[in-house]
Amino acid sequence: MTQKNIKIYIDEKACKKCGLCIAFCPKKVYGSEGGKPVIVNLSACTDCKLCELRCPDYAIIVGGENIE
């Protein structure tokens, strides 16, 4: 459980502001800025990737350091 270094990438152009990632993150990692997700609590992220999987617009990538 020492991993961390989790990165979250949000593709703002792809995001349609549905709010699903914000509402259903089990750890409340996201806040909202005009409907768009912003990362407010990255350290709480457990890399469960539910936000990525539930994003209808493929706008989120959650992962380790290899995210470009």
Binding site: K17, C18, C55, P56, D57, Y58
Partner: peptide
Amino acid sequence: LPHIWCPGCGHGI
């Protein structure tokens, strides 16, 4: 992409 579906449409999921 982006697809034609509405914001929050489950089809993308």
